[in-house]
Nucleic acid binder design. Structure first.
Length: 786
DNA sequence: CATTTATGCATTTTT
DNA sequence: TGCATAAATG
């Protein structure tokens, strides 16, 4: 059963001081934590390492405020990044002070400000039934805007336009400012799409994820009185995972805490892994400057992991330059060595993991639920899933395509959104001809054109089908039928005479969704049908258990749900997830898989120091999830993009404290410290190369290099374990003076050679136009022609 | 208009 | 590889 985990009770309870509870709350803490909990005046920053009980500090602090009579529930605002964190916080506070701690606002940034907009959004032109567009919806909208404007989708793809607009919003750059700043073809296109996209959202009464933070700022800036109301109300503002805040979140925190100045943030700069979505690590690094009278408390003692794991983690993070000084320590036992596993392929890696899991399960009696396998990209889960499935090891995958991203679920949600907010054009387009009802592309295009000409929303055009002359009778009747269907249910939804779940059930029945799913009796369809039923049950339960529940609030909450929030604990399964999803979790046994150059750290991230440091922090987050045992693994070859690639092990493995690591054979880890230190950052030539060079030579057709005369890399391992890469010399050698051909630069003459193995480079002179180029042999794929 | 077949494109990570 | 949109065909 899926729960929509929100508490939006409007009744405020009055809590009396409770000295006994206060004592109990403080008793469970060490001195440092107690200081963090009882420093309740003024800005406070709690810098807390992994496993130091920072969530504990935060929840105990809130409980303390209530028990000590310093605050009432309604005075408290607590913001997190995931629903799961918010739920845990609410539950733990209730466990400490009793379940009458209702009336607090505890929730994610996004859902809290969505709620605020529901209440106040009309002041800036949003009715409370607004739709929330996820990334896929935004992308779709952007694609349409681009097509409608004949913008070249080859120069920038809609998905990167979406990303660029999103980052602009994260930095609080509006369309006008963006247009002034735009440089280059891509940005100019974005500058044109951005305002159109904003208008389209507005017309659909829809907000994207970024808007949920930006619009409240707009609201506060345009309506002083609204800001004052909330500033006054929330005497205590708490923010978890502060290192993940972006510009907009920073501004909101500042504004809301400006009156009482009781802002308490908790975070760990070493665990900042969300820069790609606009998180600004300087928010936490500069907290002292932003709030000069702030108290800083450091929680450095780790309660989670063995000493060996902590030592490894420390040696990882030491490599980073930009960070707040802090040193982890623990009283825990030294524990086992960290194990390094080397595999031949991703299948082999998966099998090794699976064997290790079963071994520990059978011999040491560990539960399956004690294991987590972490990886860099979602695609890596497949091989591991297969290996576990083969041996009947129970597992669950967090993330990937979540429940709410499934097609059948999105279809049902789109119907519901349409009832509540008919102007939601994205939803309308999704369902207008699904299941097919004779409203094809042509008809839709005509509706669209009519809407545009009369500056109506698409739904308004549907409402006036009769007036559209370009439509034939058949199309007109089809559209009219659809209109009546939606209108009938919309009015039912409006009066609230029918329970929401019943309404939803009837609607999808009438719309033909269910019969569509039953048309073919495949396993997939059965699963889909069950998913739809589950969604409706979730709706029923939500309406049942939540005050002021409407279909609209359900839809808004659901839009902000992720699978991570669903991870029900308790059942005994191995957990598979990305390193990002792992933040905030802990497991007795952790595997970090795929420690290979190009995968972790990702190729793209190795060019910039800042990005490389973020990858390193991600590694740090991964290893610090482990309580007792930690396994690191890498595979010599791996399928990526449907092609076999061969890999070298991650540079991270060359950096870690090798004293605490043992290979499978039990030997010490031998490191090559100079492997990457020689050249930091990009070499210019490398940059200029086609990013898809490796695919070109593998496709083998039409290109300059057939597979037989291309330069092929052969790996050899010499006896001592050090790796060397030699180059096949079957078609001539790359030696100074040799004539070679390059895919892009054409013919040239080798001037000199440098380095060995993967690092081997050649300087090649390609004629006076191009000049000398320094190329990595590993990538350049030079063909020797004489 | 709907269905079938072809092409192409993606893999970072997520609220 | 495997999904999603585009072209081609009925």
């Amino acid at each position: 059963m899926r729960r929509i985990p929100i508490r939006r009770s409007t009744t405020h309870t009055q809590v009396d001081p409770d000295p006994e509870a206060e004592q109990r709350i403080l008793d469970g803490l060490n001195d440092k934590q107690r200081e963090a909990v009882t420093t309740t005046e003024g800005p406070v920053m709690i810098i807390a390492g992994p496993g130091s009980g920072k969530t504990r500090a935060l929840t105990h602090r809130i409980a303390y405020l209530l028990a000590a009579g310093k605050a009432q529930p309604r005075d408290i605002l607590a913001l997190t990044f995931t629903n799961k964190a918010a739920n845990e916080m609410q539950e733990r506070v209730e466990a400490l002070v009793g379940d009458d701690a209702r009336g607090m606002w505890v929730g994610t940034f996004h859902s809290s400000f969505a709620r605020l907009l529901r209440m106040e959004g009309d002041k800036i032109g949003y009715s409370e039934d607004f739709s929330i567009y996820d990334t896929a919806d935004s992308k779709r909208l952007i694609r349409q805007q681009m097509k409608g404007r004949n913008l070249d989708t080859d120069v920038v793809k809609p998905r990167s336009v979406q990303r660029m607009i999103s980052s602009a919003k994260n930095e609080m750059i509006d369309p006008q400012e963006y247009a002034e700043l735009a440089r280059g073809d891509q940005q100019e296109i974005v500058a044109e799409v951005y305002p159109a996209y904003e208008r389209a959202l507005k017309q659909a009464n829809a907000l994207d994820f970024d808007d949920l933070l930006l619009k409240p700022i707009e609201l506060f800036e345009q309506h002083e009185d609204v800001l004052e109301k909330y500033q006054t109300r929330w005497q205590y503002v708490h923010i978890d995972e502060y290192q993940d805040t972006n510009q907009a979140q920073y501004v909101l925190a500042r504004k809301l805490s400006a009156r009482h100045k009781n802002l308490c943030v908790v975070g760990d700069d070493a665990q900042s892994i969300y820069a790609f979505r606009g998180a600004d690590i300087t928010n936490i690094l500069n907290f002292d400057n932003d709030y000069p009278d702030a108290t800083t408390i450091r929680l450095e003692r780790n309660y989670r992991s063995t000493e060996n794991i902590i030592r490894l983690a420390d040696s990882i993070i030491e490599e980073n330059d930009d960070q707040i000084e802090k040193s982890l320590w623990t009283d825990n036992a030294e524990g086992e060595y960290v194990a390094l596993m080397e595999a031949l392929s991703e299948k082999d890696e998966a099998q090794k993991i699976e064997r290790r899991v079963r071994d520990l399960h059978l011999r040491d009696g560990m539960e399956y639920g004690d294991f987590a396998v972490l990886y860099r990209t979602n695609a890596q889960s497949r091989a591991i899933e297969e290996a576990l499935r083969k041996e009947n090891v129970p597992y669950r995958v967090i993330g990937g395509t979540s429940f709410y991203e499934r097609k059948e679920i999105k279809d049902v949600l789109a119907y519901l959104k349409l009832l509540v907010n008919p102007n939601d054009t994205a939803s309308l387009q999704r369902v207008i001809n699904y299941p097919t009802r004779g409203i094809g592309d042509k008809t839709q295009a005509r509706l669209q054109r009519y809407a545009q000409q009369h500056s109506l929303s698409l739904w308004q055009a549907v409402e006036r089908v009769e007036e559209i002359e370009t439509l034939g009778t058949r199309a007109e009747r089809a559209v009219g039928k659809f209109r009546r269907l939606i209108a009938r249910y919309a009015s039912k939804a409006g009066t609230g005479s029918v329970p929401a779940d019943e309404l939803a059930r009837d609607l999808i029945q009438d719309a033909g969704l269910l019969s569509e799913l039953r048309k073919e009796h495949t396993r997939e369809n059965l699963q889909r049908w069950e998913n739809v039923q589950e969604l409706i049950s979730a709706l029923a339960e939500y309406v049942e258990s939540t005050e002021d529940a409407t279909i609209s609030t359900f839809l808004q909450e659901v839009a902000l749900m992720t699978d991570q929030d669903e991870a029900e604990e308790g059942d005994d399964k191995v957990t598979l997830m990305t390193l990002h999803a792992a933040k905030g979790t802990e497991f007795p046994v952790v595997f970090v898989a795929g420690l290979e150059e190009g995968l972790f750290p990702l190729e793209q991230a190795t060019q910039e120091k800042a990005e490389l440091e973020e990858e390193r922090r991600l590694f740090y987050v991964g290893v610090t999830r482990a309580e007792e045992r930690l396994y690191l693994s890498w595979a010599r070859s791996r399928y990526r993009y449907g092609e076999q690639t061969s890999n070298t092990r991650s540079r991270f493995l060359e950096e870690v404290d090798s004293d605490v690591v043992r290979t499978e054979a039990g030997g010490e880890l031998e490191q090559q410290t100079d492997r990457f230190s020689a050249e930091e950052g990009p070499s210019a030539d490398y940059d200029e190369m086609d990013p898809h060079y490796y695919r070109q030579d593998l496709s083998g057709d039409g290109g300059a290099t057939g597979s037989s005369d291309g330069l092929r890399r052969i790996e050899s391992t010499d006896g001592g374990g050090g790796r060397r890469v030699v180059y096949d010399e079957g078609h001539g050698e790359i030696v100074p003076g040799a004539q070679v051909e390059h895919q892009k630069f054409g013919r040239g003459k080798v001037q000199s050679l440098e380095g060995e193995g993967d690092k081997a480079t050649a300087v090649v002179f390609f004629g006076s136009d191009v000049g000398n180029k320094k190329l990595k042999l590993k990538y350049a794929n030079l063909r020797v022609i004489g």
